[in-house]
Every structure is written in C-alpha cells, then in structure tokens.
Design a protein around this nucleic acid. Structure first.
Lengths: 116, 116
DNA sequence: GCCCAATATGCCGATGGTCGATATATAAAG
DNA sequence: CTTTATATATCGACCATCGGCATATTGGGC
C-alpha cells in the first residue's frame, strides 16, 4: 500500500469524512508534508470502495455544495491496523540498522541479534 | 519513497551488500512479507546511484559468480533516517486514530488534541 | 545421469497508483 | 472583479514496481 492510500484510510479512521476534508486532514496528519491531489483521492475512493476497505456513508449539502462522506469498513480498519504495524516495524528496522552503522558495521548487528 | 526502495536502503544501512544479499536481507527484515524482484532491485540500484543515495563499493568473485557490492552514501543514510521517522509518525497517527474509533468517534479526537 | 533449488546479475514489457492539469460551481475576501 | 477556499470529478502522462525471461555455476535429491 502506498503512502497516499495509507493516509486516506488514516484520515477516515477516526470517523466518516468527505473528500475535501480528507485532503485537509492528510495535510494535517503528515505535518504539511503530504498534499493529496484530487485526482489521487477520488481514484482511490473508487478503488478502495471496490476493495471493500471504505464505503459511501451519507451526503450533506453545505452552502450549496455537496459533501459526500466516506467511512472505513471493518475490513478497512483491520487493514489499516496491519499496515500501521508494518510501517512501525520497517521504521524500527531502519533505525536499528542505522545505529549499527554508526556503531561500526555489521559485526555488531550479528552480535546484538539484529538479524539472523 | 516506496516500500521496496526503503527496504533496499535499510538493507544497506548496516554495511555494504551485494544484490542477491539485499534480496535475502529484505525478505528477512520484513519478516518474509516482502520478496524483492530482481527487476525491481537492479532498476533501483541504477536510480538510487544516479540520485547519489547509494554507490558501487567493490566486486568479489565467489564460486565463479560475481558479487557486486553497493553501499549507502552519507546522503543515503540521512535520507533513510528521514524516511524512517516519516513512517514512524504515520504509523503512530494511524494507530492513534484507530484508538479514537474504538473509543467512540471524532469527539474524543478533538478533546485529546489528536488534531487541529 | 538428470533435474531442481539456490546463488547471482540483468533486461524488458505490462501494470497501476499517483501526479498535474483541467472543468465546474458557490461564497467570501481583497 | 479577481483570487482564494470549498467541493467534486475526469483524464492523459509518468514511473516505480511486477512478472517473466535469459544466463551461468554449485550442490542436493532421485
């Protein structure tokens, strides 16, 4: 799963949200580093809906503009939790190996059980 | 940066490694969940070398087979550290929002300062 | 003796998620 | 009156990855 997709699911994790709300949420969640494009978002909604990870929730009309809400399905919630754990492990593995690098190479990695 | 690229840099973080070694390392690091394809790896080596994140290190001949080693540059090391921190934050954000979901919705998110 | 798996590098066409641009519409700010 | 923000939606282009193929050696199983 790619970063934008992960962040879309993350934006929906706390509760239903509409397209534009997801875009602003993602910007916020990522500390301004990820700006979701409309093309990415609506394509992702279609794809994720057909995969059963998100579902259309309801529609509102605010100031003459339609708001189409999406929510995370149970499957989407489970999948996001799995992906989050995956990211956490990968981040941990990278940090551990970078520490080994600073400490002086692969010798210490084997010594401390960093691999194998 | 995509997952395979991140894991290639991670594999090189502890010290220089050759192509096939990276493939097995990545499989190990990811707990068997990511199996790097040769096509992905050697294309990535070319790309990452031109970006200055990895560099050709040395060549060995073991059992009549060539081993071409690559190493992480300083820039590659810095970049990997940045990316690892990015993953860690994203994983944390997703987990936090999933906890909010279990606790009962967006109300708690605002209350606890999860966003805004 | 023969085939398969593992080791090892490398190319190439296809796939697919993301990007960037564009379109449409309302409301508020300058 | 134009720009910015809100809001949804489509479409072509890009490019990292995938999957298959090619090539070569060593070692184990049948």
């Amino acid at each position: 799963m790619q970063e934008p997709t992960f962040l879309i699911l993350t934006a929906l994790a706390a509760g239903p949200q509409h397209g534009y709300g997801v875009i602003t949420d993602v910007q916020e969640i990522s500390g301004g580093r990820v700006r979701l494009r409309a093309g990415t978002l609506y394509a992702a909604f279609d794809r994720l809906e057909s995969e059963g990870l998100v579902a259309a929730d309801r529609e509102e009309i605010v100031d003459g503009r339609v708001r189409r809400y999406y929510r995370l399905t149970e499957e989407g919630s489970t999948r996001l939790a799995t992906e989050a754990e995956r990211l956490r492990r990968h981040a941990e593995a990278a940090s551990a190996r970078l520490r080994v690098r600073l400490a002086g190479g692969a010798f210490l990695l084997r010594l401390t059980g960093g691999e194998a």
